[in-house]
Write a protein that binds this DNA or RNA. Structure first.
Lengths: 124, 124
DNA sequence: ATCTCTGCAAATGTTTTGCATCAGC
DNA sequence: GCTGATGCAAAACATTTGCAGAGAT
């Protein structure tokens, strides 16, 4: 990740403008608004680089393709809408979670994902 | 899932004898001890059928291939060892988790995965 | 004997890689 | 002008599917 190219600038902008985790395909489509000839391989390569740089963090939701979001946000969790498939951020954590970590293991962290229906799918 | 075949009996036995979630490849290898010519397609087809029957439940750990375990266990969470890659069951839950679910969403459940090092990897 | 299930191989979908060319520095 | 980055296409994986034959009922 040495050079600043139009593709990399476009991908970074996509994340800055989207408030939620994105899949590689979502990134590709959004980036094409700015750089129409960008290829999927560049998206994967750039995401990998941004992960190594610590600029992006992976968001893995059970049963879904991996998504990515800007790193460095305060610790938070995610909500997966099983109706529309989108993933949203959920603020807050509880010390009670840490107390659930199993004895004898060296726990480095946790992932918590809620699932159900998001506000707009709920109404239907 | 109408007929009882040696392949299906073998796959069920593999789950009954393993106390932890298994990936399709782990299932294949263990089942081959009993039915050497079993193919990966049969594993996928059988897992799918057992999921539909409610006999198996999917266990998705961030960044890992899907794993499966016998369904109907009491609600529990998982621990993912980032050193050896194995996944273990973690007993217990806290009502504090439910209180974290976001307002405005219809929450149907949650997945909680701890990660770090398992007891045997911890020592090294 | 029927009809489901299986293994194999091909198809599909996703992510990675090789390589010639392009473009940032 | 170097050399890293890109696009394309092929390769590498994981999972699913088509089909003819095997096996359960």
């Amino acid at each position: 990740m040495i050079r600043s190219t139009s593709q990399r600038r476009a991908i970074r902008r996509v994340f800055e403008e989207s408030g939620r985790p994105l899949s590689p395909l979502e990134i590709l489509e959004a980036a094409r608004d700015e750089v129409p000839r960008i290829g999927i391989a560049t998206v994967y390569r750039t995401v990998k680089g941004l992960l190594e740089d610590g600029w992006l963090a992976a968001v893995q939701v059970p049963g879904e393709a991996p998504r990515y979001e800007i790193a460095g946000k305060p610790h938070h969790h995610h909500f997966h809408c099983r109706s529309c498939g989108a993933v949203f951020d959920v603020q807050g954590c509880s010390p009670a979670i840490k107390s659930l970590s199993p004895r004898g293991y060296q726990t480095e962290g946790h992932d918590l994902v809620f699932f159900g229906r998001c506000p707009s799918c709920k109404r239907r």
